[in-house]
C-alpha cells in the first residue's frame, strides 16, 4: 500500500490517522509532487484534515517527551521524502508500543528520526553561526540564506532573543519566504518572485555608510587571528564546508 500526501505536517499526521483507521498492512508514505505510480501496489490519496491531525499530534504528546516532539518536528522540517516515510513509520511504531518505545535505538525508524533530527539541528546551529547581517541605510539588518533544510522556524527565537533592539530580516531564497522582526514580534514575509533576485545582496548604495568599514575590520581581524604555522586546511573545510562560504563576510574577496 502507498499513501500519498501533500507534504504538509497536517497531511503527514492525517496519514497516520488514516492508517490506524484502515490498518492496510505495510504502507509507505510518498509526497504527491514526486510520486511515481507503480503497477503492483495500490495507492491512497490522503486529504489533510485538521481534526484528524490534531488528534494524532495530541496523542503523540502523551507518548513522547518534549525532546522527542522536537525531533519529530525537526525531521519534518528536513523536507526529505525518506524522512517523511521514516516519520510515518516511527509514529505508527510509537502508537503501537507502550510508552518508552522511542528509546529503542536498535529500531531503524527510531534511529533514522534521531539521526535526521541531528542533521537538521546541525543546520540550524550553522545558520545561527554563519548568518552575517548587513546594515542598510534605513537601519535594518539584512541577510539572505538558502539552507539545506527549512530551519527558519527553528532559528526565529534565537535571533529574536538576541537582537531584541534592532530590526532584522532573514530571507530564505530557496523556500521563498523570510522572517522580519519589528522590535516587537517576528512575522513571516514573502516577496514577489520577480523581485526576489534583488534580495540576494543589498546594493552597496543601500548600505549604511559604516558597513564597509566594519566589513574591512572584520576581514582584518579574521586574517590577524590566524596562526600561519598551524595551517590546517582540511580541518578548516571540515568546520566551514565550502557551500557556506558565500554567507561569510570574511571569505569574500575584495
Amino acid at each position: 500500500m502507498i499513501y500519498i500526501f501533500d507534504g504538509s505536517l497536517e497531511g503527514l499526521l492525517t496519514a497516520v490517522f488514516e492508517w490506524f483507521e484502515r490498518k492496510p498492512g505495510y504502507t509507505s508514505l510518498k509526497v504527491d509532487k514526486t510520486y511515481q505510480p507503480d503497477a503492483f501496489t495500490s495507492s491512497f490519496l490522503i486529504v489533510s484534515d485538521r481534526q484528524k491531525s490534531d488528534r494524532v499530534w495530541n496523542g503523540l504528546q502523551k507518548k513522547l517527551g518534549k525532546q522527542w516532539m522536537r525531533r519529530v518536528y525537526c525531521a519534518y522540517l528536513s523536507e526529505k521524502p525518506e524522512a517523511f516515510d521514516s516519520l510515518f513509520h516511527f509514529m505508527s511504531y510509537i502508537f503501537l508500543n507502550p510508552v518508552g518505545a522511542e528509546k529503542n535505538f536498535g529500531n531503524k525508524d527510531v534511529l533514522d528520526i534521531s539521526q535526521i533530527a541531528t542533521k537538521v539541528e546541525r543546520e540550524k546551529h550553522r545558520m545561527e553561526a554563519f548568518i552575517r547581517f548587513q546594515q542598510t541605510s534605513d537601519g535594518f539588518y539584512y541577510c539572505a540564506i538558502d539552507p539545506d533544510f527549512n530551519v527558519l522556524p527553528l532559528i526565529a527565537k534565537h535571533f529574536k532573543d538576541r537582537y531584541a533592539d534592532q530590526q532584522w530580516i532573514i530571507y530564505d531564497l530557496k523556500r521563498h519566504y523570510g522572517l522580519f522582526y519589528d522590535l516587537e514580534k517576528v512575522t513571516e514575509i514573502t516577496v514577489e518572485l520577480g523581485e526576489e533576485k534583488n534580495f540576494k545582496q543589498p546594493a552597496s548604495a543601500q548600505l549604511n555608510e559604516k558597513e564597509e568599514l566594519y566589513t574591512h575590520l572584520w576581514k582584518d581581524y579574521f586574517k590577524s587571528t590566524n596562526i600561519v604555522s598551524r595551517k590546517n586546511t582540511k580541518l578548516h573545510v571540515k568546520h566551514v564546508p565550502k557551500r557556506y562560504w558565500k554567507y561569510l563576510t570574511e571569505k569574500q574577496l575584495s
Binding site: F222, T225, I227, T233, H236, H239, V240, E250
Partner: peptide, 12 residues
C-alpha cells in the same frame, strides 16, 4: 556558537 574558523582550523 563558533561563528567561523580560521585557516588553521581553530574556532572563532
Amino acid at each position: 556558537i563558533c561563528h567561523t574558523y580560521t585557516e588553521d582550523g581553530r574556532c572563532v
